[in-house]
């Protein structure tokens, strides 16, 4: 049986993400949109109660006794925007890998929305990944697929019907502002545009959590700012954002929770923090 973190809204236009499109493209003050917005907010409130990410005394030791994480305990509430900062090799990426079950913890437990994924079975990993959106520094797009196909692929692999794909894909592509580049291939896009495609693909399952691992690492200041704005808008409608970054400017302007890692564990955890390294 497929596990879900929470039942998804039946009408995609009612989910928080579609409101992002409306914020970008339309005037929001009609009665219908009011109720859609209200429902979205109500949905967000429910999510806030149920979707929590918990790392409990998690350690990760790689072969050769290389300790990446050491007794890390962390709780991220639903709807939070958390920046995880730290020098290279302190375990930031390992944290992301554990969250999407790319790696398994050596000790401790990881629970996402009530689902203990510490010892998740290989067959359940695809289900988890369809519910946690991930954005990488190197975009990880499929080079031989167009923008549309890259975004649609994430739905196709989960067996979504054609009609649903045809309805959702244009919406998420609109959210990231690439509606005029649907049929371009990744090599025909700038770095910023490729990262937007990556975000659109991550959003296509309407994830409750979006993990962004150095999403601005390969981008210039302007493109970085646009990506962060996009993440903020997505977060504003209830999606938890976990941003792993080295970008001091980004972290300092966000004025959100900042977790600073050192030596595989948490050195500082500030509700409204700054980049302190």
């Amino acid at each position: 049986m497929e596990r879900r973190l929470k039942p998804a809204p039946t009408d995609y236009r009612m989910c928080p993400l579609s409101s992002v499109v409306e914020q970008r493209n339309r005037k929001p003050h009609t009665s219908v949109r009011f109720w859609q917005g209200a429902l979205a907010m109500a949905g967000g409130a429910v999510l806030l109660l149920v979707l929590m990410i918990t790392f409990e005394k998690v350690s990760k030791i790689y072969p050769g006794n290389s300790v990446a994480l050491q007794d890390l305990t962390l709780t991220i509430d639903a709807g939070e925007f958390v920046s995880i900062v730290g020098q290279s090799g302190v375990g930031k990426t390992t944290l992301v890998k554990l969250l999407i079950a790319e790696e398994r913890a050596s000790a401790g437990s990881i629970v996402v929305g009530g689902w203990d994924i510490t010892h998740i079975r290989a067959s359940e990993v695809p289900l988890l990944r369809r519910q946690i959106g991930v954005v990488f520094q190197d975009y990880k797009l499929l080079p031989k697929k167009s923008v549309w196909e890259n975004v649609a692929f994430a739905l196709e692999v989960s067996g979504a019907p054609r009609e649903r794909i045809a309805a959702i894909v244009p919406q998420v592509i609109k959210i990231v502002g690439l509606e005029d580049k649907l049929h371009r291939y990744p090599r025909q896009l700038s770095g910023g545009e490729q990262q937007r495609v990556s975000i659109a693909r991550a959003l296509v399952h309407r994830p409750k959590v979006l993990v962004a691992d150095e999403p601005t690492g390969n981008l210039d200041a302007l493109n970085s700012q646009e990506i962060i704005e996009l993440l903020k808008r997505i977060n504003a409608f209830g999606t938890t954002i976990i941003l792993v970054t080295h970008n001091r400017g980004v972290v300092n302007t966000l004025k959100k929770r900042v977790i600073t890692m050192e030596g595989g564990t948490i050195a500082h955890d500030q509700k409204i923090g700054k980049y302190v390294l």
């Binding site: 290989a122 695809p126 289900l127 991930v134 990880k140 692929f153 994430a154 692999v157 693909r201």
Partner: peptide, 16 residues
């Protein structure tokens, strides 16, 4: 190989 890794990351099952 990189495409296969990406497919896995977006939730494709091994059979897919």
């Amino acid at each position: 190989r990189e495409e296969i890794v990406v497919m896995k990351l977006v939730g494709a099952s091994n059979a897919f």
